[in-house]
Simulated scan of single mutants.
Amino acid sequence: MKTAFFSNVSGKNGVTSNIACISIMCAMEYQLRSMIIENHSNLNSIENAFVRYHEHYLVNEDYYYFNHIGIEAVIKKLHSEKEDDNMIESASKKFLNHYIYYLPQSHTMNKEVLEFQLNEVISRLLEKAEQCSDITFVDMEGKVNLTSRAILEEADLVVVNLSQDIRIIRHFFEHYQALIPKAIFLISKYDSRSKYNVKNIMRKYHISKENIAVIPYNVEYKDAISEGKVIEFIARNYNCKEEDDNYTFIREVRHATDILYQKSRNYQKEVLSV
């Protein structure tokens, strides 16, 4: 299932951090294999959330340049029509016993060139990714770039990442009505004390409880993101007790993942019935 994580603003609605925790929970809770792709080059990458800084530093650059991993290697194969059945897997970094595949960002290609070349092959790339995963997550850039429209059109599900800022919420519902039929909503950095709590958002914008979840603000998770320790954080707190400081965060991530899982099951049933 092709799943686009989308936000109508850049850098405020937690797209990358939400993909990170939900992809991990998909693996741990449901043994779903996911492929993560980014349609942009950015310092705040999934890789930086999964890999500690000192481990980045220790990686020999030759690993990237001569072993042909990452999205740049896949783009080149697709452009040269030298694609093969396992090219996505071989170009990916693997996490959690190969339940999470991640196509690293380009270390050499100019950002504008990357976007242009990715745009020419995005449909085939998504098709290849879907063949080797249960769910393909696309971490989309906040601003609209060349591939955004194609990804949103091809996505089977759009996870709309919002914050408790009424201007951002209103902007989405005024400008992106076309996405709503295949959307679920994640309210990032959630604080139940806000006037714009989930019940009020559901009531005002007519969102059913099956299509909305929250990711609470959690300072320890925020630190884990910046330190490349997200997998360790989720694993360590996976079975935490109700009295634990991280219990609410894990409970809500589990709930958000369950919504995504149910959408995935429904999608599979629809595919099989065709």
Rank of each mutant, 00 (worst) to 15 (best):
N197A: 07
K204C: 12
V253D: 05
I22K: 01
I250A: 00
L186V: 03
Y57F: 09
F6S: 04
S80I: 00
Y267H: 10
S41C: 08
I69P: 08
I231P: 00
Y176V: 08
A183P: 04
K2R: 14
S80N: 13
P216H: 02
L125K: 00
Y101W: 13
K182A: 02
E130G: 14
S163K: 09
S23K: 00
F5Y: 02
E154Y: 09
I22T: 12
K12H: 09
N67C: 13
H107P: 10
Q105E: 14
K2L: 15
M109E: 12
K143T: 11
I168Q: 10
F5S: 00
F172D: 03
H171T: 10
P181V: 05
F185G: 04
I169A: 09
Y217M: 09
I231F: 09
E89K: 12
S23G: 04
H40R: 02
I225W: 00
E232S: 13
M25D: 03
T257A: 04
M202N: 07
L260R: 08
A256M: 12
K111V: 15
N145W: 01
N145R: 00
L179S: 08
H54R: 11
V160Q: 09
A20D: 00
Y99T: 08
G228Q: 03
I135A: 14
E89H: 13
I187E: 04
V15L: 06
E61Y: 15
N60V: 10
K199D: 15
F233P: 05
E72Y: 00
E130Y: 11
M1E: 02
E29A: 13
V214C: 07
L32M: 10
E270M: 06
N246A: 06
Y217R: 05
E29I: 13
V230M: 02
V158L: 04
V214Y: 04
N211M: 12
I215W: 06
Y63F: 14
E220P: 03
L58H: 06
E120Y: 11
V74Y: 03
P216K: 06
V214R: 02
N161W: 04
E141G: 08
M202T: 07
N211R: 15
E220M: 10
L114I: 06
H107T: 11
I100T: 02
A224S: 12
I207G: 10
R170A: 10
Y101H: 12
D244H: 13
M140R: 00
N13A: 15
K263V: 01
M25P: 01
K199T: 08
L272P: 06
V74W: 04
V144R: 11
Y99L: 10
F66G: 06
R236G: 09
I135G: 10
V74M: 11
K182R: 08
I212V: 14
Q164F: 12
T108Q: 06
R33T: 03
M1A: 09
H175A: 12
E38K: 04
H98R: 15
Y261N: 01
I69C: 06
S273T: 08
I166Q: 12
S92E: 04
L58Y: 07
F66H: 14
I187P: 01
I69S: 04
A150H: 10
K82Q: 14
Y63P: 03
E243G: 01
L96V: 10
I19P: 03
I46E: 02
R193N: 06
N60H: 09
E61L: 13
V159L: 05
S45I: 00
T136C: 11
Q177E: 15
E154T: 01
V15W: 01
V159K: 03
